[in-house]
Amino acid sequence: MEAGKVESSRCPPEELRIRILSFDELRQRALSVYLESVAVPRSIRRQGRDRVRIMRYVLKCERVFQVVAAELGRIARLPRTTSMHPFYAEIANIASHGRFDEIVARAARGVMIVSKLWKEYRERILSSLTPAEAKRLAREFVGRTLSVARRSLRHAELLREAVKALRQTPCIDTESPLVIVAGMPQVGKSTLISRLSTAKPEISPYPFTTKHVILGHMEVDGHRIQLLDTPGLLDRPNSEMNPIERRAAAALRLLRAVTLFLIDPSRDSYYSIDKQLRVLRNVSEIVGVDNLLVVMNKVDKVDEGRLKSVEELVEEAGFQVKYRISALKGWGLGELVRGVVEELRRRGLLA
Rank of each mutant, 00 (worst) to 15 (best):
G330S: 05
L252V: 06
E175Q: 11
L328C: 07
Y270S: 06
R247C: 01
A95I: 11
R106V: 02
E90A: 15
D268Y: 01
L227M: 14
Y323K: 00
A70K: 12
A165N: 14
V279Y: 01
F23L: 13
V67E: 08
T174W: 14
I273G: 03
L228A: 07
R224K: 15
E123G: 13
S147M: 12
R224Y: 04
V294W: 02
L328K: 15
K119L: 13
K275H: 11
E2R: 12
N297P: 09
V321C: 06
V279I: 09
P265E: 02
M1Y: 09
M55Q: 14
D274G: 08
L215D: 02
E15S: 08
A105M: 13
K60C: 06
R151M: 09
L350G: 06
L292Y: 04
H217Y: 15
F208V: 03
I20V: 15
A76K: 03
R144W: 01
K60Q: 14
I113K: 09
L159N: 04
A149E: 08
G305H: 09
Q186T: 13
R151E: 15
R150N: 01
R139T: 00
G4D: 10
L262N: 05
L280Q: 02
G334M: 07
G143D: 07
I286E: 08
S32P: 02
V111K: 05
S284G: 07
D221S: 15
A76T: 04
E304F: 05
V163D: 01
E102V: 13
M296E: 11
V111E: 07
P265W: 00
L227P: 00
N242A: 07
G232E: 04
P12K: 03
K329S: 14
V179T: 10
E36R: 15
A134Y: 02
S309V: 05
E161W: 03
H212G: 00
D101T: 04
E120A: 10
S32L: 09
R246P: 00
G330I: 12
E36C: 10
S284M: 09
F208A: 03
E25V: 08
E343D: 13
E123I: 10
V187W: 02
A248N: 06
V287D: 00
D173F: 03
G348N: 07
L328T: 10
S197D: 02
E15Y: 00
S272N: 08
R253W: 11
E102A: 14
T81C: 09
A248H: 03
R106Q: 11
E312Q: 13
V52C: 08
F319S: 04
L146R: 06
S9Y: 11
R246V: 02
P205H: 12
G330A: 13
A105T: 09
R63T: 11
L255C: 09
H85F: 12
V321Y: 04
R281L: 10
L328P: 05
L178D: 01
Q28P: 00
A3I: 14
R195A: 14
S197C: 09
A249K: 08
L228H: 05
V213Y: 05
S204R: 15
